[in-house]
Amino acid sequence: MSGKLQKFKANASALTLAKDAQKILMHNEKTVQYGLVLTKEQAVELLETQAHEQRYHGRLEFGEGPVGKLIDAFADSPYITRQNYADTLHALVETFYYYKNETEDKLTDDELIEYMRKFFNGSCEGSIELLSSRELDSLARALRY
């Protein structure tokens, strides 16, 4: 890769971060009914995790990215509380990008998130560890072979 994209991303990152954080905070309006609210700092941290994962997995985001969709999908989970909300979202973002590549883009974002939600709330009983190492791993393997 020539690095032109990375250079532009690095130079424009401050502007990108401020705008995208605002978009994430808008989800608070829906999640507040579950007692889940992100602060501006937490939103920025989530975007930093997202940016880090994108770099690490060599992907470029467009639109809002998966954070908003993950918030919408997991807000009503019985395993997410005010205390573990932000940490769980960080772990979900990492898991999402890892399996986006591992499934070779064969699943759409919505499909992958739906699988993640179903396993997390079902057989994994809120364990990110099980979600990642057992369920999604089997799914990715099944899709690849």
Binding site: M1, S2, K4, L5, Q54, G58, R59, L60, E61, F62, G63, E64, G65, P66, K69, Y97, K100, N101, D105, T108, D109
Partner: peptide, 18 residues
């Protein structure tokens, strides 16, 4: 990118984006 791939995904590998 959104107009080309938006229905399927919100991110693409860097090679495609580049």
């Amino acid at each position: 990118l959104e107009s080309l791939y938006g229905k399927r995904t919100s991110s693409v590998p860097d090679e495609i984006a580049e």
